[in-house]
């Protein structure tokens, strides 16, 4: 692997890992379902960055972009469904606290 390519990828790779860390931390600590979904969005931001950086490093930007656009479409569908479910949960419990979800015991 050429040196410049791997240096470029490493820089954005570090950024992606840090955003991922932030997203996972928030996912585990937050108590609002809306914030949980925002954390999930941050996580998908991080993999999107990783994907585009990888595509750039190996000169496959066309493929990487096609994948990224597909991913964005999927993201929208997931967010819409999640928001719909959260609204329905809110209607039942009058709260979006994650505690209501943890009530179903293992």
């Amino acid at each position: 692997m050429p040196k410049e390519a791997i240096e470029l990828f490493s820089l954005f790779g570090v950024g992606a890992l840090l955003v991922m860390l932030v997203g996972f931390y928030s996912l585990l600590t937050t108590r609002s379902l809306i914030r949980v979904m925002i954390s999930v969005e941050l996580l998908s931001k991080s993999v999107m960055l990783l994907l585009i950086a990888a595509g750039r490093a190996v000169n496959r930007t066309a493929l990487a972009q096609a994948m990224a656009i597909t991913l964005i479409n999927i993201e929208v569908a997931v967010v819409v469904v999640a928001v719909g479910i959260i609204l329905c949960i809110y209607r039942h419990h009058k709260t979006v606290d994650t505690a209501v979800v943890q009530e179903i015991k293992g």
Binding site: V36, L63, I104
Partner: peptide, 25 residues
């Protein structure tokens, strides 16, 4: 509640899979 739980864990799985797709690319 079952659906949102599945959705969140599935999103986490997605992130892991996509991260590895990027590395494979």
């Amino acid at each position: 509640e079952g659906a949102i739980k599945y959705l969140i864990l599935s999103a986490v799985a997605t992130v892991l899979m996509l991260g590895s797709l990027a590395l494979l690319l």
